[in-house]
Structure formats: structure tokens, C-alpha cells
């Protein structure tokens, strides 16, 4: 995470039980102002609701690519 290129977390190859814990661990490890790119094969809107409920005001959410096969979301830490 030291260079300028944001890290890319592709959860298409993460088992269902580990997807959200892996995403939240990655987010929690970010420094203020840092971001990562989440890659998935569907719109991760349930994750966004979970972020809003558990990390309200601490994150930013920007769709970089919205399907139809791949979604990329830049998730940043405020």
C-alpha cells in the first residue's frame, strides 16, 4: 500500500463465508485517505448496506465499473 496504485481485492475467488470478513479486514487496515478497489461478479449493494450500518460516515463508495459481468468499486476510508 506504499505506492500510489490502489490495491485491488478480487473477491470472486474468495469463499462465501470469507468474503465480507476479508473485505472488512482490508478496509479496517487502510489508513485515513487510502482506498482499495473491490472486484466482484455482481453488484455488491448488500455490502454497501452493511458498511452503512457498521461504518457510517467512515467510508466512500464509488462505482468504477457496473457490470454486466464485473463490478469494480473504489472503497475509501475517510
Amino acid at each position: 500500500m506504499s505506492d500510489n496504485k490502489p490495491i485491488e481485492l478480487d473477491v470472486r475467488i474468495v469463499p462465501p463465508a470469507e468474503k465480507h470478513p476479508t473485505i472488512f479486514r482490508t478496509f479496517d487496515a487502510l489508513g485515513s485517505g487510502e482506498q482499495f478497489i473491490l472486484v466482484n461478479d455482481h453488484d455488491p449493494f448488500p455490502l454497501r448496506y452493511q458498511f452503512e450500518a457498521t461504518r457510517a460516515g467512515q467510508f466512500s463508495w464509488e462505482y468504477l465499473e457496473s457490470g454486466p459481468r464485473v463490478w469494480r468499486v473504489a472503497i475509501g476510508k475517510s
Partner: peptide, 15 residues
């Protein structure tokens, strides 16, 4: 497949 999540996170963080 257990543990793949941590592996994928390590790969991501490594850039």
C-alpha cells in the same frame, strides 16, 4: 477453499 480469503487479501496488499 478455507483460508483463501486471507490469501487473496495478502495478494491484494502486496500490489
Amino acid at each position: 477453499a478455507a483460508g483463501t480469503g486471507g490469501l487473496v487479501a495478502a495478494i491484494a496488499v502486496s500490489g
